[in-house]
C-alpha cells in the first residue's frame, strides 16, 4: 500500500484520513485568515488614529504658522521696534562690509590728538561728570 492509497483507505472513526487532513487544513486556513484580518483591522484602526492625530497636529501647526506670520508682519515689527526700542532704518553712511571692520576698529583704537590748551582769563569751572564724554 502506497502512502497515497493509505491516505484514502485509512479510516479513523469512519472518516478517511484524507478527509480529516483536509478538514484540519481548512480549519487552520480559516483561523489563519480570521486572525490575520483581525490583526490587520486593529493595525488599520491604529494607523487611522495616528493619521487623525497627524491631521490634528497639522491643523495646529498651520494655525501657529499663521499666527507667527501675523506677529512677524513687517509693518508691525517696524512699529514696535520704533515704539519700544527707538530703532530706525540705518543711515547709508553707517553701513559697511566685513572687510572694512578692521579699519574701523583700528581707527577707533587710535588715540585722538590732544586738544590745544587755551588759557582762559578766568579759571574754568569744573565740568560735570556727565559731560566728560562730550570732549571726544
Amino acid at each position: 500500500m502506497t502512502p497515497f492509497t493509505f491516505l484514502f483507505q485509512k479510516r479513523i472513526r469512519g472518516f478517511r484520513l484524507a478527509e480529516l487532513a483536509a478538514f484540519f487544513c481548512l480549519t487552520a486556513l480559516v483561523l489563519g485568515v480570521y486572525f490575520s484580518k483581525a490583526h490587520a483591522g486593529g493595525e488599520t484602526a491604529r494607523i487611522g488614529d495616528v493619521d487623525d492625530q497627524i491631521t490634528e497636529e497639522q491643523h495646529r501647526v498651520r494655525l501657529l504658522n499663521a499666527e507667527l506670520a501675523h506677529l512677524e508682519e513687517p509693518a508691525r515689527i517696524e512699529r514696535l521696534s520704533q515704539q519700544y526700542l527707538g530703532l530706525a532704518p540705518i543711515d547709508a553712511k553707517r553701513e559697511t562690509n566685513s572687510t572694512s571692520l578692521m579699519e574701523i576698529a583700528r581707527a577707533a583704537d587710535t588715540p585722538a590728538p590732544p586738544a590745544k590748551v587755551v588759557k582762559a582769563a578766568t579759571p574754568p569751572k569744573p565740568a560735570p561728570a556727565a559731560s566728560e564724554g562730550a570732549v571726544r
Partner: peptide
C-alpha cells in the same frame, strides 16, 4: 488581502 492591502484601501485617508 488581509496582510498586504495598502493603507489607503482602508478608507481612512482624510
Amino acid at each position: 488581502a488581509a496582510l498586504f492591502a495598502p493603507i489607503e484601501a482602508a478608507g481612512r485617508e482624510a
